[in-house]
Design a protein around this nucleic acid. Structure first.
Length: 440
DNA sequence: TCTGGGGTCCTAGGACCC
DNA sequence: TCTGGGGTCCTAGGACCC
């Protein structure tokens, strides 16, 4: 391999030329579940329907711990927002004699709600519902990209027509059928946006939630986007919105007619993207989701602690969990990192790369603890462990890279002997390398 | 609104290489 | 020997998304 040349199996590396990537007549569908976690809870507990419902994690009655993951629309009208502290959210719920299930399954004495409910996140269950939805989507479209547990893009160019000519259903009929089917078979509501590209489809699905169905045909994209606030454009959060406001840009239409050079100056590469998205231009092809780029586990203390022993314990626990996930995903990692958050909310990260990919829980743990040393005794509220620079082997390798062939079955759970390690520049094996790295 | 957990992508500066 | 240009990798931090 020439130096600098990326191995072809590199996750997130180049993709083969995907037919249709630069077509302007694509039909892209964005499916977005409405309040997915809350909808799942209602599916198995119908009494929660039409009630204000807060789903959160980490809540401990009487503390500020825990944040809202999803609030039902009924709860939102009461002022409850996602990411809000649960203690605050519960105060917004009207009172009645009713119990609230806590994360530990006990009734919380701290709260007697009225027509308001709290349920702890149950990811395993939501995953199972998500899987049902996933199967429906794959049945409905040839190309599906799952973005998250409750969101996916579909390229339905070959199955749907804008105007319904030929034997194809119209975009609207297709989307209507799809939401009906998801509701019927998976038991959860969805909103759908259809447009000529991913960005516009995403904005469309968001436009009329819940239970929305918005179709934006090719000729109408600009007219649809222009009046929307810039925040509607994917990639514009609070920080960029403020910067844009300083430039006099508050709507997507204004962003679309802003000076692209100025945007490039302020936002770098992203500026160009935002500009194009606001103009309704987005050539990214819908591609199936590849392998993850990093795996990470983090956890917050109730309050903050400067107890180094306790922190080391947590780091060790998180490291084991990350290692287990890596095994689960057949991932090898070359970079190990930690994240520490100190009050009020200062985030620091540290990372170290090994000379070869490994999958070794003890190395992971030791490197993580080693990186943590510099923070020992510091007051911390949160800790995290992460692995990145991942490589995959085995049958779960998705779509790309398998053709490289040679390195599929020569290692199991043992440490990697990845190809990269056998190059002339680096003849040592990954196992040796990782230990040498650690001791240095 | 003082903040949970799991991710992605981009940027800037430094080390290092030819 | 104090000096060019081109490039990659690594780390740390930031913004954003769900």
């Amino acid at each position: 391999m020439e130096r600098g040349e990326k191995p072809a199996t590199e996750p997130g590396g180049w993709l083969p030329d995907v037919a249709g990537s630069d077509r302007t007549d694509r039909i892209v569908c964005h499916v977005d579940m409405d309040c997915f976690y809350a909808a799942c809870e209602r599916r198995r507990e119908p009494a929660l329907r039409d009630e204000p419902l807060v789903v959160g994690m980490g809540y401990e009655p009487g503390t500020d711990r825990g944040a809202v993951a999803t609030a039902s629309y009924e709860a939102r009208t009461l002022g409850i927002e996602s990411a809000q502290a649960i203690s605050v959210a519960l105060e917004e719920l009207p009172n009645r004699e009713e119990h609230v299930l806590t994360d530990t399954g006990d009734d919380a004495e701290a709260y007697h709600g009225e027509t308001g409910f709290y349920r702890p996140v149950d990811m395993t269950y939501y995953q199972s519902v998500s899987e049902q939805v996933r199967q429906i989507l794959h049945d409905a479209a040839d190309i599906v990209r799952e973005v998250s547990i409750d969101e996916a893009y579909l390229d339905v160019t070959d199955r749907v027509g804008w105007d319904g000519t030929g034997n194809r259903p119209t975009a609207e009929a297709f989307a209507r059928d799809l939401t009906d089917r998801i509701a019927r078979e998976a038991g959860v509501p969805a909103s759908i946006g259809v447009a000529p590209n991913m960005s516009a489809a995403k904005i469309a699905s968001d436009h009329d939630k819940p239970d929305g169905l918005v179709v934006v045909p090719p000729g109408e994209v600009r007219a649809f986007l222009d009046p929307l606030p810039v925040e509607a454009v994917h990639g514009v959060g609070p920080v960029r919105a403020r910067t844009l406001r300083e430039l006099g840009v508050t709507t997507a239409g204004e962003l679309a007619t802003a000076d692209p050079d100025v945007l490039g100056e302020r936002f770098g590469e992203r500026g160009r993207d935002l500009y194009e998205r606001a103009r309704g231009v987005d050539d990214r092809p819908v591609t199936p989701k590849g392998n993850p780029k990093s795996l990470n586990r983090e956890s917050a203390f109730a309050g903050a602690t400067d107890d180094a022993g306790r922190c080391r314990e947590v780091i060790g626990g998180l490291a084991s969990e990350v290692a287990a996930r890596a095994t689960n995903e057949s991932a090898l990692y070359r970079t190990i990192g930690i994240k520490v958050v100190s009050p009020p909310f200062e985030i620091s990260t540290r990372a170290r790369s090994l000379s070869g990919p490994v999958r070794d829980a003890s190395v992971l743990k030791r490197v993580a603890l080693d990186l943590f040393e510099e923070f020992e005794g510091t007051r911390l509220r949160k800790l995290g462990v992460r692995v990145s620079n991942l490589e995959f082997n085995g049958a779960d390798q998705s779509s790309l890279g398998n053709w490289k062939g040679s390195r599929t079955d020569d290692f199991e759970d043992r440490e990697s002997t990845g190809e990269a390690d056998r190059t002339p520049e680096n003849p040592i094996s990954a196992g040796q390398a990782s230990l040498a790295d650690f001791e240095r």
